[in-house]
Design a protein around this nucleic acid. Structure first.
Lengths: 203, 203
DNA sequence: CACATATACTTGTGTTGTCCTATATACCTC
DNA sequence: GAGGTATATAGGACAACACAAGTATATGTG
């Protein structure tokens, strides 16, 4: 029921329509810790309203379809406080990529390395996007701003750790692949030192 | 459809019953990257059998209920290889705890810090358990063993990063809380150095 | 004027995953 | 011999979530 509380959280900061929540909140602000389908947001709003946690009023608009703007009620605010103060157990770990890696023993070395390198690129792109957000959104001294910054930094930290792990894993697996690769003719043992523009295998 | 492939992956390593998959595979080996409900495992096995990816045969047992032992078929093995070689996009980020933190601005400082400290304890416990596993399971030079070790190390790396982030966050928030706390009588400024058994605030 | 785009919301449907319960056998312990 | 534990499987109910399509209106663009 995290989505419920995310919506309550956003509505506490300011009233919003389902459309606002989707385009402004979930597609941007919350992007690094939660996402939500548009249909799901509307259905959840309906449910929260029935539960008395939010109230709705329709805003007529001339140039646009009418908006149903939701606000947090007192009960909603209390529920949000109750929930934020609740200690919850760690959720089970779930990572399709690690699963893929765990069962990739059947792949040729090159395919395995390609998989890891592709992953590295994707994770690096995510990290770059996060850093952009830290530098643009990471200002402000209000309590909300500090907490928002902390959530961004959490994801930055784990993402960096993932990149480091990927680098180590790529190094390890290429070394293993090199060992087991049928040596290209005349290269079992180097007769000459590597040229200066060639990288050594290990520091 | 990750569960499907996890089952194919385990069955490639050795034939197993639904019960084996639950108790030996998902509750232990795969614990750090996937979990599965017992009911779901049986239903998935049925589906995989209909799809021709696994085959079943019943083993009569005298002292125990009969077991239905599943094995990977040729088609199943091919599907597994196809899937492991497939590059998939990063899944969206989902973290209920970060959401909680993001919307915790309404909490008193002490509750907020309690939340983070409780989290630290839980994450540390997970890390300890992972380290145990690395030292007991992290042996062997087979391809499977290496990949298994890498998956464990991935989770160790991100878990460590999370602990570091929690420590930094706790430090930051306690400092902020200290600033805004109404100063206890006579303690705006320390007149005496801390006694030797008192901890300094920072190394 | 046709068409795409942005706004704003609704409905249907399927999949995944969780929880709970039921069934059955055999062992072990009190 | 009653009750707990381990083995082994199966079913219903349901919540969460994703995907897809449909309904409107107004604006901008070629």
């Amino acid at each position: 029921m995290s989505l419920d509380h995310a919506i309550l959280g956003f509505l506490r900061e300011q009233p919003a329509s389902g459309y606002d929540l989707k385009t402004l909140c979930f597609d941007h602000d919350a992007q690094h810790f939660w996402t939500a389908d548009q249909a799901q947001i509307y259905r959840t709003l309906e449910r929260l309203q029935r539960a008395g946690f939010v109230s709705a009023r329709v805003r007529r608009q001339r140039s646009r379809p009418d908006r149903t703007v939701y606000s947090l009620t007192q009960a909603g605010s209390e529920e949000l406080d109750r929930w934020t103060a609740t200690v919850t157990p760690l959720p089970p770990l779930r990572d399709p990529f690690l699963m893929q890696l765990r069962f990739a023993a059947g792949l040729p070395d090159d395919d395995l390395l390609a998989l890891l390198r592709a992953r590295r690129i994707a994770v690096q792109a995510r990290l770059d996007a996060l850093r952009d957000r830290v530098s643009t959104e990471g200002r402000g001294g209000t309590r909300e701003a500090v907490l928002h910054r902390l959530t961004l930094e959490s994801v930055v930290a784990t993402t960096r750790a993932t990149i480091d792990w990927l680098d180590d894993s790529i190094d390890l697996l290429s070394a293993l692949a090199e060992q087991s690769r049928p040596a290209p003719a005349g290269s079992q043992r180097r007769l000459f030192a590597p040229r200066p523009d060639e990288k050594g295998s290990t520091p």
